[in-house]
Computed example of a mutant assay.
Amino acid sequence: MRVATADLISRARAGDGEAFQELTEPYCRELQVHCYRMLGSFQDAEDALQDTLLAAWQGIGGFQGRASIRTWLYRIATTRCLNARRSASRRPAKEWNVPNVEPPEPTRLGEVVWLQPFPDALLEGAIGVPLGPEARYAQTESISLAFVTALQVLPPRQLAVLLLRDVLGFDANEVADMLDSSVESVKSALKRARAGLQRRQPPTPEREPAPAYDSPAEDALVAKFVRAWESADVDALVALLTDDVFMSMPPMPFEYQGPDVVARFCASIFAAGRRFDLAPTRANGQPAFGAYLRAPTGIRHGTGLIVLTLTGDRICAMTHFETSVLPSFGLPRSLPSR
Rank of each mutant, 00 (worst) to 15 (best):
T149G: 11
R200K: 13
D244F: 02
Q32W: 05
A210F: 03
P26E: 06
V33L: 15
E30I: 13
Y74F: 15
P251A: 07
D44H: 12
F329L: 07
R70V: 04
R75D: 06
N100Q: 12
L49E: 09
A126Q: 02
P250F: 11
E322V: 12
D51V: 07
R314H: 14
P211C: 02
R165P: 01
D260G: 05
I269P: 00
F329H: 06
V234A: 08
W229F: 15
V226W: 03
A84M: 08
A291G: 11
A55L: 12
L39I: 09
P205V: 09
E18V: 09
S144M: 03
A283Y: 01
R2W: 06
D166V: 12
Q50G: 08
R200H: 10
D180G: 07
G258P: 00
P216Q: 07
E255S: 10
D243A: 15
G169S: 08
L31P: 00
T79D: 12
L31Q: 02
L49Q: 06
L73W: 02
L278S: 04
E218A: 11
W96L: 08
A150Y: 08
P92M: 05
I9T: 10
L305I: 06
E141Q: 14
E124G: 12
W72A: 08
I76N: 01
P205F: 04
R199Q: 15
C266A: 11
P327M: 04
E174S: 13
Q201P: 00
G40D: 00
R157Y: 14
L278W: 01
T5N: 02
S268C: 04
E141I: 10
G15T: 09
A195P: 00
S328L: 12
S181W: 02
F147L: 07
H301D: 07
L131Y: 00
G330V: 11
A48N: 05
D166I: 10
I9W: 01
R80Y: 01
P203W: 04
R108F: 15
A267F: 04
P119L: 03
A6Y: 00
G62P: 08
D120E: 02
S231A: 14
T24M: 01
F289E: 01
S142E: 06
A4M: 12
A217V: 13
L123D: 00
I306M: 11
C266Y: 13
R192F: 06
T107I: 11
R11L: 14
A220K: 11
P119R: 05
E134R: 15
T323G: 05
F265G: 05
A14C: 05
N284D: 15
I76V: 14
L115M: 14
G304V: 02
R13E: 07
E230P: 02
L326Q: 03
G196M: 07
G330K: 03
A239I: 05
V238Q: 12
L197T: 00
A126M: 04
N97S: 15
A77R: 04
P211H: 07
S89K: 14
L154Q: 01
D219C: 07
W96D: 09
T71N: 01
I269F: 06
A317G: 09
